[in-house]
């Protein structure tokens, strides 16, 4: 396959997100402008101007009309995807690390970093249908038990009943989305041994995958939080994604960006690694980035995927037909 290279960002990529129909791709980077691309040919459609810091995360509503972004400028912003206009800005006292729309797009979960005296927290916001009626009050605030440790990702559980979070304290937690009660914690024995960097849900919300700096990715049941599978990568994992079509997971990562210049370029292993979801065996690797991979996303049709790297490039890969016939 010949990947499409998109050079719209001047700084490292942080997050990639497809819309539900799979025709649009949103990219976030440490420069201040999230960008919208066509997911088939990689043409740039628009940039969302307004943030004043690195943008860590984004999510798009099911109807592809609203975008929410979380940024290091201590705000999370709502955008109109059609025009690129900012609709609303949630202000926090610390950087917003991750954002996720609930089913139905009536709620959003936003996590904030520990900053000065503030501890890491999970905020649930109500998203008004008309941006005029939007208020900035949180419906629910869940303080992290270990507030000095950053929460890297929080997503909605099945039917919006729970919130699943993971971060620097290596523990995965399931919270009740109504009451804010902590329902479950992952077992320290089988859990990650280092910071959880990424978390990605299956299309049907039944399970999810986490990537960690302990050089593994793990597959978990979303209701019971039991460990299902472990994928061992030789390098820290920064990004994970699951194929909606085949039983494949893809891990992205590479050595720490600060160590890149001190070692030989062959040592980096900056490839997107494909694993069989069930057999936990490596299927193959897709090379190309000149730095660690920070973001990965599968197209909802499962026929293409994109990766975003520390090198500032988004690489959009449309699979060749032989990918769909891989046998281990």
């Amino acid at each position: 396959m010949r990947p499409i290279l998109m050079k719209g960002h001047e700084r490292p990529l942080t997050f990639l997100r497809y819309n539900r129909d799979g025709d649009m791709l949103f990219s976030c980077a440490k420069d201040h402008t999230p960008t919208l691309w066509y997911a088939d040919n990689g043409e740039r459609h628009g940039t969302f101007r307004g943030h004043n810091g690195a943008v860590w995360c984004c999510d798009v509503s099911r109807d592809s009309l609203r975008l929410i972004t979380g940024s290091a400028d201590q705000t999370a912003k709502l955008w109109d995807v059609k025009t690129g206009q900012q609709l609303f800005s949630f202000k926090f006292g610390s950087p917003a690390r991750s954002v996720d729309f609930a089913l139905g797009d009536k709620l959003a979960v936003i996590t904030t970093d520990p900053f000065m005296e503030r501890t890491s927290a999970i905020h649930v916001k109500r998203i008004a249908e008309d941006p005029e009626d939007q208020v900035s009050d949180s419906v629910l605030v869940l303080p992290s038990p270990d507030g000095k440790k950053r929460i890297n990702r929080a997503v909605w559980g099945p039917l919006n009943q729970t919130i699943v979070s993971g971060g620097e304290d290596t523990v995965l937690r399931i919270w009740d989305a109504e009451t804010g009660k902590l329902l479950k914690e992952s077992d320290a024995e089988v859990g990650h041994k280092n910071t959880i960097t990424s978390l990605s849900k299956a299309a049907d919300d039944s399970h999810f995958i986490t990537g960690s700096l302990d050089k593994t990715a793990k597959l978990w049941d979303m209701r019971t939080l039991t460990l299902l599978k472990t994928y061992v990568s030789g390098v820290p994992v920064n990004a994970v994604s699951m194929s909606p079509l085949l039983d494949h997971v893809v891990l992205g990562g590479g050595q720490d960006a600060s160590a890149v210049t001190t070692t030989d370029h062959r040592a980096g292993k900056f490839e997107a690694k494909f694993y069989d979801k069930i057999l936990q065996e490596e299927i193959g690797g897709v090379k190309g980035h000149f730095g660690p991979i920070n973001a990965l996303a599968f197209n909802p049709d499962g026929k293409s995927f994109s990766s975003g790297g520390e090198d500032g490039y988004v690489r959009l890969h449309h699979f060749d037909s032989d990918y769909f016939n891989i046998r281990i």
């Binding site: 050079k7 940039t47 690129g84």
Partner: peptide, 20 residues
């Protein structure tokens, strides 16, 4: 198109197909 993409000049070549 909106933002920077609206007044993007044709020669900017933000999107390229890999030669490799």
């Amino acid at each position: 198109k909106f933002g920077e993409a609206a007044n993007e000049d044709a020669g900017s070549h933000l999107t390229m197909v890999s030669t490799e």
